[in-house]
Design a protein around this nucleic acid. Sequence first.
DNA 1: TTTGCAAGTGCAATTCATTTGCATCTGCGC
DNA 2: GCGCAGATGCAAATGAATTGCACTTGCAAA
Lengths: 143, 143
Amino acid sequence: MKHPVRKTLTERCKRKGLRITAPRRVILQVLETAQDHPDVDELHSRVREIEPGVNIATVYRTMNTLAEHGLIERHSFSDGRARYEAVPESHHDHFINVDTGEVIEFRSDEIERIQEEIARTYGFDIVSHRLDIYVRPRQPDDD
Amino acid sequence: MKHPVRKTLTERCKRKGLRITAPRRVILQVLETAQDHPDVDELHSRVREIEPGVNIATVYRTMNTLAEHGLIERHSFSDGRARYEAVPESHHDHFINVDTGEVIEFRSDEIERIQEEIARTYGFDIVSHRLDIYVRPRQPDDD
DNA sequence: TTTGCAAGTGCAATTCATTTGCATCTGCGC
DNA sequence: GCGCAGATGCAAATGAATTGCACTTGCAAA
Ligand SMILES: [Mn+2]
Ligand SMILES: [Mn+2]
Ligand SMILES: [Zn+2]
Ligand SMILES: [Zn+2]
C-alpha cells in the first residue's frame, strides 16, 4: 500500500505532547481542510465561524507552536503576511500568480535533485529550501 | 568583448531621471561596494560613516525607489528584515548557512532552465523567482 | 549665473503584523 | 475529582517599515 492513510494533525499533536484544547481542535481542523495557503487573519475568521471565542493571539501562538514541531509550513510570499499550510504528504514548491495572488503548487524531482547536487559540491547539507516562482498567464508573443 | 564595463548605479539612476542627492550618492556607493546582503540598519550605519546626517527613513525610501526602478534586489531570508543587493551582472540564487546566517551565492543554469520548462507546461510566463536554500556544512555521516 | 519648482529629505508620528506580560482557565495524568 | 503545567484571552508592547509635513536642493530652463 503506497499511502497508509495519514495521521490526522490532531493525532500528531497528541503524539508530540501538545494539549488538544477547544481552540486548537478547531484550528487544526481548519488547517487540515484548507485547500489554500491562508494567513493568520483568514485562519482566525474561519476558526471563528466554528468557535467564536477564539482570540487571534491564540492563532498566532498556535502557528508558532505547530511550526516549531514541524506540523505546518510557514510561507512568506511577497505580500507581507505569513501564510500557512499543513505539512504536505510530499514536498512541493509554489507558483504565485502576480496578477491575482493565487498560489499554485508544483513539484519537480529534477529541481530537487539538482539542488542536492549543487549543495554537495559546495560542501553543504540542505536543511530546507523554498522556491517561489512569480508568474503570469502566458501571453501570446506579439512581435 | 564579453563584459563592457557596467554602468555605475549612479549613472543608471540618472538615466532613469532620479536625482543624485548627497544621501543618494553615498547610499549608491555603499550598495555598489557591498560584498554582502546588508539590511537597512546595516546600510544606514555604513552610510553614516561617510555622511552622518542621513536619516534611516531616507534609506528606506531609497531602497523602495531603487527596487521599483529595478536597480536593486530585495531579499527576505528567514530573519525578518529585508536585505538588499545591487542587481547582479547575472542572476544567482542563495545558500543561507543556518548556523551563521552567512549568505553564499550560486547559479545553476540547469535549475533556471527547468523552471522555465515547468512554468511553460503550466501555461505561465515567469516574472521572477527566488530560490533560497538553507544549509549547514556537510556532516560526516556517522552510521 | 540665477531662478523655479518638483523631487527628495529629516523628523516625528503612524501603521500593521506579530509578540508578550499577566491573570485566569483547562486538559489530562494520577 | 485534583493539581498544575500548559494554554488562552485581553491589552499593551514591539519592531520593521511607511508616511505627513515643513523644509531643502538638484537641475532644467532662462
Ligand atoms: Mn503549498
Ligand atoms: Mn546575492
Ligand atoms: Zn522544492
Ligand atoms: Zn534562480
